[in-house]
């Protein structure tokens, strides 16, 4: 579980994150949603310690996240897996080397043990015949799977995904969303996902927080978001023709 208490973050006196409090629950896919520029990525980077927060505090379970406590941060980061928007695979390494990388850095496993573990997660994310290919040789969907495999190879307690299905076709996007949800339940981890994709919200939104201009204006589940009366949320949720029609059918 990750608890965020009254955190704020400004860049050049412009508040990007404004007094946000939230609880990201264990074993659930917690979604941060909002329009582009609403502060989702900044919030995630604050949670990861890539940006220093100006005010408030972040608790990983009961542990306070303090940037100046290097040993604590170092230990905590070994328990964090991250799937970046662009996958962020290391170009100079093959798929299997990318997946083995965290093991090589943080475990005392032998080469053969690392390969066995890497093959387990490769199988888990349904990848085939890509072990020795380089990131430039595989598709966007495959890259996401490799990124997920790399993120879970150390059995993390926390999984962060920054727009995991951006740039993917709708079918692959849903497959990736489902994969993340399955892994969250299977590994019993706290998953935080940044997205503005309504399909993701509907498919895997166990818990959702909605941001507008850096402020949290709503919190709930994927079922609740469809029935809320909040105008800003409805404008966001029903911005596409498809969802407008779904709403119309629901009313009928």
């Amino acid at each position: 579980m990750i608890t965020v208490k009254n955190i704020s973050k400004s860049f050049e006196n412009i508040k990007i994150i404004d007094d946000i409090s939230a609880v990201f629950e264990k074993g659930k896919t917690n979604l941060i949603i909002g329009q582009s520029g609403s502060g989702k990525t900044v919030l995630m980077k604050c949670l990861l310690g890539l940006f220093d927060i100006d005010e408030g505090e972040i608790l990983y379970d009961s542990q306070k996240f303090k940037k100046d406590n290097i040993s604590m941060i170092s230990d905590l980061r070994k328990q964090i897996g991250m799937v970046f928007q662009g996958s962020a695979l290391f170009d100079s390494m093959s798929v299997i080397e990318n997946i083995i990388f965290p093991l090589r850095m943080f475990s005392n496993k032998t080469d053969s043990e690392m390969i066995i573990r890497a093959r387990e997660v490769i199988k888990r994310v349904d990848l085939k015949d890509v072990d020795h290919k380089f990131p430039s040789e595989i598709s966007g969907g495959m890259k996401k799977r490799v990124a997920i495999a790399r993120a879970i190879v150390l059995n993390p307690k926390y999984l962060f995904c920054d727009e995991p299905n951006s740039g993917l076709d709708p079918k692959t996007a849903i497959i990736i969303d489902k994969l993340i949800q399955e892994i969250t339940i299977e590994y019993d981890i706290t998953t935080v996902i940044n997205t503005h994709d309504m399909n993701s919200v509907m498919e895997i939104g166990d818990k959702i927080i909605f941001l507008v201009e850096g402020e949290k204006i709503w919190e709930g589940t994927n079922k609740e978001i469809l029935n809320t009366d909040d105008k800003m949320i409805n404008d966001f949720v029903y911005s596409s023709e498809l969802f407008k029609k779904v709403k119309l059918i629901q009313k009928k």
Partner: peptide, 17 residues
């Protein structure tokens, strides 16, 4: 620079490297 643009450096930092 390419590693920075493609978030590979962020990936290293998130891993605690």
């Amino acid at each position: 620079g390419t590693m920075r643009v493609t978030e590979q450096i962020d990936a290293l930092e998130v891993m605690g490297i």
